[in-house]
Amino acid sequence: MNLLREPYSRNRQIMLGVVGVVGSMAVAELLLRTVFTKPGLPVPSKVLLGAVGLFGDPQFWQAVGFTLVEWMLGLALATVAGVLLGGAMGASRIVRIMFELPVEAFRVLPSIALGPILVLLLGAGMLPLSITVALACVWPILLNTMYGVRGADTTAIQTARSFGVSEIGIVWRVTLPAALPFAFTGVRIAASIGLIVAVSAELLIGSGTGIGGYILSNSANAANLDLVYAATLVAGVIGVLVSLAMAALDNGLFGWKKGLAQ
């Protein structure tokens, strides 16, 4: 049995990826044109044409812009709250024990369920949507930050102490840098969740704003279903781009994480 394999070359990987995407689209195209011909199903060629058509639609771009701002605002709120509370929970046993149960209880609640209440409290607009996003995003950031702070190496801390660094200095110069890559992993996970929740929340409480609102208003008209699929596709592509950007940022900022594997 051969367990160790040479990785494929980059070109070969790209080629296989393209074959996978184009192949599955071709299969879907074939099936939807011959076997499952019910109107309203996403025929790839039509969806792609629809997506190309979307590029010329300023209304759609406005919706995309709205969703991205809403998502970033929510992610920012979640990052601030998650890093602060997670950091405090990692650093202090008292804080951790006090908040352990509430965190466990709240993080399994579907944040979207709170959406209607938020609209009632805050009125319609971007803020209740962003808060809904934040409520879903805060947990992975909080938990990862907490484990990052708790995991700061005792030898690293004692080294700083032996050089006469103050306790505040140790938090600033050892615990924080050691925990940052963990916090950022939390942000990466949260970013994808946040985009899903952003579009879902728009469908539910967005009153026609954002990508979700665009999808919702167009799905009322059977003739526009390709647009609906196309918008969904664009939302997916945005998600992939966000994920790639976050991975690149992670690599650039925290490339030293490789040192932890030793």
Partner: peptide, 8 residues
């Protein structure tokens, strides 16, 4: 040394 040095 690997834990005493700061990997970042």
């Amino acid at each position: 040394y690997s834990r005493s040095l700061y990997p970042w």
